[in-house]
Design a protein around this nucleic acid. Structure first.
Lengths: 211, 211
DNA sequence: ACAGGCTCTAAGCGCTTGCTCACCTTCGGG
DNA sequence: CCCGAAGGTGAGCAAGCGCTTAGAGCCTGT
């Protein structure tokens, strides 16, 4: 059966992102929009630029999307769903609070580094969404916050963590992970895996877990 | 004698930011631009909006600034100078590495929270600068990085800190502090002082200092 | 008194923007 | 074999953009 993952496997094993978006032309436009938004920002990107990158005329965009803002919303929605799923599956896994927090940070950071173009759009173009779409997305972010806060609370209750300010530390942990999307670049020295491992270690120190 | 601070004191003790910018009309335009850029982003802000907030006609902007981009550059330059000065004065102060790191994070975060509109423009509108102006600003950021890295290195050398990856931890500390400008809002529960204290504590834990 | 320099405005130029519309092609089903 | 739906294009509209220009008001020095 199909997987719930956003990405799908092609015959030769390559990753094909946004495989869930159909038809094919709509997917190409969306991928082009992610690249353009990540490079120049939503407001500095023109519909002509997006259509051009997808190899189509400017008018073709409006066959698949009502407005440029709808494109951003689709990207933001899918990205936030994926990010939330990563955090949730780590939070609900077996193991100690420390193990779950470490795994959550590691995979969350790995996603922000590995998909930093997508993540940049998802995390930094929120204000460009219309009012209705924005409140929908903000609710997803509230759930991400709740997932992390739950791990911290459980760790404190179990005596594993020493955290005086759980809401504040939750905010700091998520903020640290999210900001990876801003500075990470592919030509840098670190791989997404390495950054994930480094950050998982730093976060465990923040909650008072000894090595 | 005058102070090197960006802000100046008025007769009744109120803070008057951007006091160094003259003449008065140029200062009003710059303050208006900071607000507008912080709210909507550089590209979504129009020169008519900036001039309107300053109570002037659109053309007045071009008496004091050659282009809209020059306005952004002036804001970015002054803001980066201030941020770097805060880090440097903490790094070069007396005291143990732990004390200096704590003071640096506390004041750096306090500035990002207290001046979060300015900080948002300074930290997140870098890509909107022209190529020449951007390389100038990037150099200032390199120096901020060096100031923090120096404290970490000295703390490790003195045996105060346990930091396996100094460059990576430097990156994480700065990233954590900078991202305060993104999420901080004045209607929230925390004051800039409280966030500074929380973050100073979290960073000390990251470098392995016990309480 | 008045020349000369600042500061600021009203009007608007040339261009780009998001988006639309009339029309063309491709293609599976009766 | 023709049909209508679906996906695509070239041309272009109304609006808004950054920025310029001609000239008005005002302060200052002689």
């Amino acid at each position: 059966m199909g997987t719930a993952d956003v990405t799908e496997e092609t015959a030769n094993g390559e990753e094909k992102p946004w495989g869930e978006v159909t038809p094919e032309a709509a997917r190409r436009l969306l991928v082009a929009a992610v690249e353009a938004f990540a490079e120049r920002g939503y407001h500095a990107t023109t519909t002509r630029d997006i259509a051009g990158r997808a190899g189509m005329s400017p008018a073709a965009l409006y066959i698949h999307y009502k407005t440029k803002e709808e494109l951003l919303h689709r990207i933001s929605r899918i990205g936030h769903d994926k990010a939330l799923e990563i955090l949730r599956s780590a939070a609900e896994a077996e193991g100690s609070a420390a193990e779950r927090l470490s795994a959550a940070v590691r995979s969350f950071v790995r996603w922000h580094a590995g998909h930093h173009t997508t993540a940049r759009v998802v995390q930094y173009e929120l204000d460009a969404l219309g009012a209705g779409h924005r409140t929908e997305i903000v609710e997803l972010r509230r759930q991400s916050d709740a997932a992390v806060r739950r791990i911290l609370n459980e760790g404190v209750a179990a005596g594993e963590f020493d955290v005086p300010d759980v809401p504040g530390t939750t905010l700091a942990v998520l903020s640290l992970c999210i900001d990876v999307a801003r500075w990470f670049n592919t030509e840098g020295r670190r791989t997404p895996d390495e950054v994930g491992a480094l950050y998982a270690d730093l976060v465990l120190r923040m909650v008072g877990v000894q090595k």
